[in-house]
């Protein structure tokens, strides 16, 4: 290694098994280990500047993949709210059923894809871009509780998200114990 080059480098201690694995990955991609590690560190710094860890960002990426697999698309929020408002009054039951069935599909998919499908579902609700400001999940041996809060979703959308959660949880093998739904607030309790 030339002196000039070594002046621009620093040695960092890391677990040997991880270094070996990354070395193999760099070889597969036809990159030098040094360049490969630089790319990783660049992204770690970028993640930090976005106020996230790489773990959080990869978790979110996996959730976005769930949406893609489910055939979800980005839609203007105003259109969604308008459509719900106009159709809910006359046909609220069938809309609820549609969201329930969609939730069931997500539940089945999460069960297949994630080891801890319940945690993945919690993450999906938090990061699902459904305007939920807070999503709490309390897990104990006998029950699972969800509490979702949003400052600005309509009564109708609140009800539909509640049905979605129920659908997913039923697919994950839980039964509804208690439900409470108020504009922007959902509280659900499930048992195994």
């Amino acid at each position: 290694m030339s002196k000039e080059r070594s002046r621009n480098q620093k040695l960092i201690r890391a677990p040997a098994d991880l270094v070996s694995k990354l070395n193999e990955a760099a070889n597969r991609e036809g990159k030098t280990f040094y360049n490969y590690v630089s790319e990783i560190f660049e992204q770690a710094v970028r993640a930090y500047e976005m106020n996230h860890s790489l773990k959080e960002i990869i978790d979110n990426y996996e959730i976005l993949e769930v949406h893609k697999e489910a055939g979800a698309i980005f839609t203007p929020r105003d259109i969604l709210d308008h459509l719900i408002k106009k159709t809910y009054q006359e046909d609220g039951k069938s809309l609820q059923q549609l969201w329930y069935q969609t939730g069931k599909w997500y539940g089945i998919y999460l069960k297949e894809k994630f080891e801890d499908s319940l945690q993945a579902f919690h993450h999906l609700l938090k990061e699902g871009r459904w305007d939920l400001n807070q999503v709490f999940m309390k897990r104990n041996q006998k029950t699972i509780e969800f509490r979702c809060v949003s400052a600005f979703i309509s009564q109708e959308r609140t009800m539909l998200i509640k049905k979605f959660i129920e659908g997913a949880m039923h697919s994950l093998g839980y039964k509804t114990q208690e439900t409470e739904c108020f504009k922007g607030i959902i509280r659900l309790k499930f048992s195994p």
Binding site: R7, N8, Q9, K10, L11, I12, R13, A14, P15, A16, V19, S20, F33, Y34, V37, S38, F41
Partner: peptide, 8 residues
């Protein structure tokens, strides 16, 4: 542990 060289 191993040492890895990183850009300064």
């Amino acid at each position: 542990r191993k040492l890895l060289a990183a850009r300064l």
